[in-house]
C-alpha cells in the first residue's frame, strides 16, 4: 500500500543524478552503518529507476512538472492485458521485450527486420519531456527517451508513393492475455495505428525506448513505442512489431471499433468534444482538480501548420 505523502512536491525531490550519486556514495559506507535508519528510509523512498540508457537530457525549457515514475508506470491503458488501468502493471510480466525485432515493409526500397537493440545503438537517444493527453480526459507529463521517427523513416527509405505509415503492435496471445480471448477480447487485435507521412516526419514524433532514463517498463509499451504528443494517447501505439509504408490511410483500431467516436487524426482539441464526454479539460495524474486542455495539447506552434486545410471538427 502506498501512503500519500502530504508534504512532498515533485519539485522537492532531489534531481535523479544527484540522488543516484548520493546513493552510490552512501552504498559505499552502507556496510558499516547498515543499521542506520536514515539509509533504510532512503532506500525505501527509492522510487526512481537506475538509468540504463545513454541519452541527451531535455532541459525542460517549458518547465513542465513531471509526473513521478510510479504514476507513469502504474496507470496505463494497455488492452492487450486488461481494460483496467491499475491492473496492467501486475499483468505485464508476460511480455518478453528482449530480444525484439521490428519488421519494416510495404512501400520501401527493400523490406527488412531490425532489432531494437541495434536501433538504440544506431541512433543517438535524447530525452523528450512531453505532455501526454488521453482521450478519456486524464493526462501526465513524461520524460521519454527515444529517437525521432524521422530517423527510422530515412533508414527505411520509403518509395515516392508511400503516403502513410502504418504501425502494428505484436500479436502473440502467449504474451498478451486479452488476445487469447478471441471475439471476447476488448478490441480487435493486433492493435493498429497510422500517421500521415508529414506527421510521421515531424520532429516531435518520437520512437520511445525508455522513460526516466531507463528502458521502458512492459506496461508502458516495451521495448519500443510511438509517442505523438499532440494527439490523444491511443495514437501512441505500444510494443511495435511492424511498421509498413502504405499509400492508403490505414484504418486504426479505435476508428475500426467505433468510427463515430474515434477518427484517424485524433488531434487533441478542447473545442471538439468526444460524443460522450467533454474534452475541454483534463486531469493531470496525481492532481485533484482539472486544468484546461490546449489545442494540439499545447504544440500548436510545432504542428498546427500541418492541419491548416483540415476541418478539425470533421476529421476527428
Amino acid at each position: 500500500m502506498k501512503l500519500r505523502n502530504f508534504n512532498l512536491k515533485d519539485k522537492d525531490i532531489t534531481p535523479e543524478e544527484l540522488f543516484n550519486d548520493r546513493r552510490k556514495f552512501l552504498k559505499l559506507g552502507a556496510a558499516a552503518v547498515v543499521a542506520n535508519s536514515s539509509i533504510v528510509e532512503l532506500l525505501a523512498k527509492d522510487k526512481y529507476p537506475t538509468s540504463n540508457l545513454q541519452y541527451k537530457k531535455d532541459l525542460n525549457p517549458l518547465d513542465l512538472e513531471l509526473n513521478t515514475f510510479d504514476q507513469i508506470t502504474s496507470y496505463n491503458n494497455f488492452y492487450e492485458f486488461t481494460t483496467s488501468k491499475e491492473k496492467v502493471k501486475k499483468l505485464a510480466h508476460t511480455l518478453k521485450p528482449n530480444p525484439w525485432s521490428i519488421t519494416i515493409d510495404g512501400l520501401v526500397e527493400k523490406p527488412f527486420q531490425v532489432d531494437v537493440s541495434d536501433l538504440i545503438k544506431q541512433f543517438s537517444l535524447e530525452e523528450r519531456i512531453y505532455r501526454f493527453r488521453c482521450v478519456e480526459g486524464w493526462s501526465m507529463v513524461v520524460p521519454w527517451v527515444g529517437f525521432e521517427l524521422a530517423n527510422l523513416i530515412k533508414l527505411a527509405r520509403p518509395l515516392g508513393n508511400a503516403k502513410y505509415v502504418r504501425f502494428e503492435t505484436l500479436h502473440d496471445d502467449e504474451q498478451f492475455p486479452d488476445q487469447k480471448r478471441g471475439i471476447f477480447g476488448a478490441i480487435p487485435y493486433p492493435y493498429v495505428e497510422g500517421l500521415r507521412m508529414d506527421e510521421a516526419m515531424n520532429p516531435l514524433t518520437l520512437m520511445s525506448v525508455g522513460l526516466y532514463g531507463k528502458t521502458l517498463e512492459n506496461q508502458n509499451g516495451a521495448p519500443i513505442r510511438l509517442v505523438i504528443p499532440w494527439k490523444y494517447g491511443f495514437k501512441s501505439i505500444k510494443s511495435i512489431a511492424k511498421i509498413s509504408f502504405v499509400e492508403e490511410e490505414p484504418l486504426n483500431t479505435w476508428q475500426r471499433a467505433n468510427k463515430k467516436e474515434y477518427g484517424f487524426y485524433a488531434n487533441v482539441n478542447p473545442e471538439v468534444d468526444h460524443p460522450r464526454w467533454s474534452q475541454a479539460k483534463e486531469r493531470v495524474l496525481g492532481k485533484f482538480f482539472k486544468k484546461k486542455t490546449k489545442l494540439f495539447n499545447g504544440y500548436e506552434k510545432e504542428v498546427g501548420h500541418m492541419y491548416t486545410n483540415l476541418d478539425l471538427k470533421k476529421y476527428i
Binding site: M1, L3, S74, Y75, R283, L285, G286
Partner: peptide
C-alpha cells in the same frame, strides 16, 4: 490516506 492516481 492512500494514494489513488485518479481519485475522481
Amino acid at each position: 490516506i492512500v494514494e489513488v492516481l485518479e481519485p475522481v
